[in-house]
Write a protein that binds this DNA or RNA. Structure first.
Lengths: 151, 151
DNA sequence: TTTATTTATCTTACATGTAAACTATTTTTG
DNA sequence: CAAAAATAGTTTACATGTAAGATAAATAAA
């Protein structure tokens, strides 16, 4: 399959796709490494704690949580089990629906999240320090808008 | 940790970071699903075949290959083992360095890649169809430049 | 040349991601 | 209400990602 068989639009789409993957994966890797080295956590766990931190105080069901997560999608049963074992989250059976239960962060989980979030803001700021703020705004809006058309 | 404790620049960096993760993960997911459903392969395997397709005919060592991969980073031993078992790649011990060996695609692997690449170009084009081509170019250049400053 | 170091890759153990089949419960439909 | 369908989550099996330590070969140093 040579380049000649692709349309101009396909070539540009592929270029953008590759660059997006490269950039995003690299950035994700940088933050993931930092979280692991400094807190023994990874982006999936940070993501879970982040969603629980902004959730209503009684917590979220598995389904609600799964729908909000950015990184991990699939089986979060094991992830939550391990986080519960580490004392970061707790579960409570729902009275009105015995299939379901609520997940919320513990005091320990929330304190850890607060620490990680602060550091994360610094790491991300450093990683993006060469981008001027106007470009950042424009770029973020562009991505947000474009994402809606992916559905 | 409330928003008030972040600087303006940190807030914009975090916004951009989140949007990048959301967009890129979603796009990656769309393509990964398509590859799985249509070819029983995933992005990591597509990535490997893609690098081998553009490599010198004698192939790449594990180290060279690992350095070029976009998606997967860690242990590619198992990935290559499974791909070899599926007849997509082959290995050849290097004569001058017995620690190392060369990996290259088989005929079957390259034919599969050609098919997947063509379909992939169409899927990516469709996913990005709402973005005009000038924005695509600008965006890709921006990402490419910004990525260098991540190192 | 012998020892030490570096390099290339593997092995192990475990965490996470994916798909499909399964269980229990709730809701819908006739 | 009883059967069917939908929902919430789990389980299983396997693929992949990560880190640390091990192995073997090549290279550098004494």
């Amino acid at each position: 399959m040579t380049d000649g068989q692709y349309t101009k639009r396909q070539k540009e789409s592929l270029k953008l796709w590759i660059e997006l993957l490269r950039y995003s994966n690299k950035l994700e890797q940088i933050i993931d490494d930092k979280l692991r080295q400094n807190y023994g956590q990874n982006i999936s766990r940070f993501d879970v704690l982040s969603q629980l931190a902004r959730a209503k105080p009684e917590g979220l069901t598995i389904g609600e949580l799964a729908g909000q997560l950015i990184a991990s999608k699939g089986n979060i049963t094991g992830l939550l089990d391990r986080m519960q074992k580490d004392g970061l989250i707790e579960k409570e059976t729902k009275k009105n629906d015995r299939r379901s239960y609520l997940v919320r962060h513990t005091k320990k989980g929330n304190e850890l999240f607060a620490e990680m979030a602060e550091k994360n803001a610094q790491w991300v700021e450093t990683a993006l320090e060469d981008i001027d703020i106007d470009h950042m705004k424009e770029f973020a809006q562009f991505l947000s808008k474009s994402r809606n058309s992916l559905d």
